[in-house]
Design a protein around this nucleic acid. Structure first.
Lengths: 219, 219
DNA sequence: AAACTCGGAGAACAGTTGTTAACTGCATGG
DNA sequence: CCATGCAGTTAACAACTGTTCTCCGAGTTT
């Protein structure tokens, strides 16, 4: 306790560390409170009370509740982002059943590991706080672009327009969020994952036959 | 006016008519206020103030805000339900491009006609008020069952299990809600409807080739 | 060792909230 | 035609909200 060596943050010190700790405590408390309400009804005092700090301390970390919400979006989708990219690369080139299983397992594992984060994203994606909605929308759009970029590298993508690839990717991303929400509402994950897999199979099947018939006259 | 027989509302009542008028005013005001917040942050006094009625008058119509929310679900999805059934029957047996166009047009028209209702459903589907979430979930499940029942009547459905038909129907219903939400966030409906059509085309394509290959080992 | 930063506390503010109780007046049913 | 029912009002309640201003004390810098 008394030695001065081996601080993870060299110069900045113990001061900033404590600030980050309370900031994280605020985020955690907010996330916990959001299990049973929406962000737009979450009170600043409610959060600080749960942490055990004075209401005014909130302003040292966030301008308002919407600001805290945006931070939560980054926390929730940041971790998912890395694992998503990893899974994408790991199952790369793989097209069929194994990739579907991996995709569904990714989202099942995420919901099981971070249910509060998953609930927050599903809830606030269409929620009442504009800035948070936009932050989530931007992140999911980024996800879709990355999935589309991965698809573009695969042999199945020859003949596909960039726009169609993005459309396909958005389908996967949106389905991911839907599945997460469905998982949160049930206590038996079995049927939900089963349905999710079959739906992905359906889309994958449509993907394989996308170029069979010409586009419908216009375009 | 004077006979005592079988009226669903026995008393014709100018009295009850006025009650329904204020009840509707409460629903309308709530829906308007929900454009920029979630139901869980909507205040009882806020609603009554917007209508121009005393706060306590609220209790004559609803037990609490959640109760009003459930009523809004019925109002929003009741009207959609009838037009959905009508469209389903009208485009019955039709499978391809024309049905896709009709489905997308249905949801575009609905969002344009009742944007506040559409926003409410999209927002509260995963929102912070349990009872409302459940009401929406039940309604959408009903929609899915009806779509599945229609599919079952069509020649393309031979060889499909009931479960797979429901899975397909849920895909369409969920996509409907997603499209509605996307339409609400943009001011140029063009690209959104275009993407929605292509996504439906993809699913429809997958549907046509569903029975090409056998299910993946299990089942 | 003194000067300075700055995360947090404390108190006070004007408003707001949901809910209760008792009341009023009018349409209704006997 | 009178008595009842009941939609809506008024008043009051304790509790809560976001935000401001002032202050403290410990970490940091010089």
């Amino acid at each position: 306790m008394s030695h001065t060596l081996g601080d993870p943050a060299p110069t900045p010190g113990a001061r900033q560390a404590q600030k980050l700790r309370t900031r994280q405590a605020l985020l955690d408390a907010a996330l916990r409170l959001l299990a049973e309400q929406s962000l737009s009804s979450l009170g600043l005092r409610e959060v600080t009370r749960a942490v055990g700090v004075a209401p005014t301390a909130f302003y040292r970390h966030f301008r308002d509740i919407a600001d805290l919400g945006v931070a939560l979006v980054e926390e929730a989708l940041g971790s998912l982002h890395t694992t998503l990219v990893a899974t994408l690369a790991a199952t790369g080139e793989g097209d069929g059943e194994e990739r579907i299983a991996a995709a569904v397992e990714l989202i099942v594992a995420y919901v099981r590991a971070y249910p509060a984060h998953a609930r927050f994203i599903a809830r606030e994606q269409h929620g009442g706080v504009r800035r948070v909605r936009e932050a989530i929308g931007a992140q999911l759009a980024l996800f879709a672009r990355e999935v589309a970029a991965q698809f573009a590298k695969e042999p199945e993508a020859v003949g596909w327009s960039e726009d169609d690839l993005l459309m396909l990717a958005r389908m996967y991303v949106d389905h991911m969020v839907m599945t997460a929400s469905a998982l949160l509402e049930t206590d038996d994950a079995g049927p939900v994952t089963d349905t999710a897999r079959r739906q992905l199979r359906l889309v994958s099947l449509g993907r394989r036959h996308w170029l069979d018939a010409p586009p419908p006259a216009d375009r």
